[in-house]
Design a protein around this nucleic acid. Sequence first.
DNA 1: AAGTGGTCTAGACCACTCA
DNA 2: GAGTGGTCTAGACCACTTG
Lengths: 256, 256
Amino acid sequence: MASILECTNSSKSIFDHDISASRFSARPLYLQARDAIAQRIAAGDWKPHTAIPNEADLAREFGVSPGTMRKALDLAEAERLVTRRQGRGTFVTDPTSDDQVERYNCIRGRDGKRAGKEIEVLSLLETTVNERECLRLHLRLRERVIRIRRLRLADGRPYMLEDVVLPARLYPNLTHETASERTVVMAQKFGVLLGKGEERVSIGNAAPDVASALQVDEGHTIMRLDRVIYTLQDKPAEWRMGHCLMDGRYYLSELR
Amino acid sequence: MASILECTNSSKSIFDHDISASRFSARPLYLQARDAIAQRIAAGDWKPHTAIPNEADLAREFGVSPGTMRKALDLAEAERLVTRRQGRGTFVTDPTSDDQVERYNCIRGRDGKRAGKEIEVLSLLETTVNERECLRLHLRLRERVIRIRRLRLADGRPYMLEDVVLPARLYPNLTHETASERTVVMAQKFGVLLGKGEERVSIGNAAPDVASALQVDEGHTIMRLDRVIYTLQDKPAEWRMGHCLMDGRYYLSELR
DNA sequence: AAGTGGTCTAGACCACTCA
DNA sequence: GAGTGGTCTAGACCACTTG
């Protein structure tokens, strides 16, 4: 019997989706079920904001018990793939919704609110990886990357210069327009599901190009934000080096 | 039948521990069971590194089903109360062990390793809260706090001046010696179970007292680390303001 | 071989939402 | 009242560790 992982089409036959035949596989059923859910969301079979079938139906469709399906859904919710509400249903999380869009943005203004939303693309280039990118993004030599230099603005004023590097494989034919979107929006357009990230925050001084872009003197103290975001499958999906003016702003870190 | 929450003594009677009678309580059984586990660990009934009874025994003792007890243990593990290892058992996590002690310390050296461990207490004072402390620690007016000023050193050199504020109620009769321990060690000595934290990172300049403590010029650029750590019950347990030299160091933030 | 946690089943009833 | 997720039960078998 075919694994659910091979079936991203819209066939309704329960047989195509049944994963109970792979119960002798090494991977636990609840993880396979979670994978199947992720797959459908990534492929766009299930759109953001829409309800997915209820637990019992999904369990029947995938050929697992309700308890196992629940465990898969619990995991999917923890990974922000879905949102569940008692009495209402299970909904596909929209990563571009107001409460999710700033998921990886830790910069806050004096008022505690997140900093500005405007983004201006300065340059966009597809090329071959250099050594640093290779290390940071775990790519092979000669793989292609997309380099984006862009500016973030708050109230019309630039506060952060970003150098974004993306594996070209994940974002084929990226346009200038898409490059001006936030990371989560770009990812969603290409069916990339984002998971954990890691950011290294340090203090630095504005190099000439950074200073002119941010409209400050050369050598101005800035915060350097060196961030890598991984996909749900733990593959690097973005490396961003940010150069941020911190007057009146702070970086908010959640500790667990 | 008595709730488990009232029983922190070492009585072995299963009746004293049974929480099934509170199944009509608003609080779900698995949360009550988790609370009971936390209580015993905080009270020192179960010591770090020791094994606790297996799932089936705990389920019988608490009067719940194995599935419910498992859910409680899953939660306790996510909260770092216990560590479970297949085939071996469930063990009380030692918050002062090497891999846990630096849980809230995000400062890393050039090599990616955590910064130095030495701590030198400069001053220790019990007093009444001021306004800022009141806000940060959610305390009532006139509550008592302990203020600790201390220095962190790496390779014998100071790199961070810390102003730590603790609610005196949680840390009765804190000694100078205990004040030189890390947060997690202090908390463990007083049976305080720590949960989430939140840190605001900004850039600042060393005030005169900070500069002299860190052996740098006044006005030297530093990173300000404004951190609040909460207990597992979401009550503030510590407010720390750190003033940190960042030459060659960075702040590591995990994004989820 | 015995004991542990990890996975999985197949139900039950409750709390909540909405038409 | 019908449908949803949330909680809870009472087992089964498997994978892993240790004596």
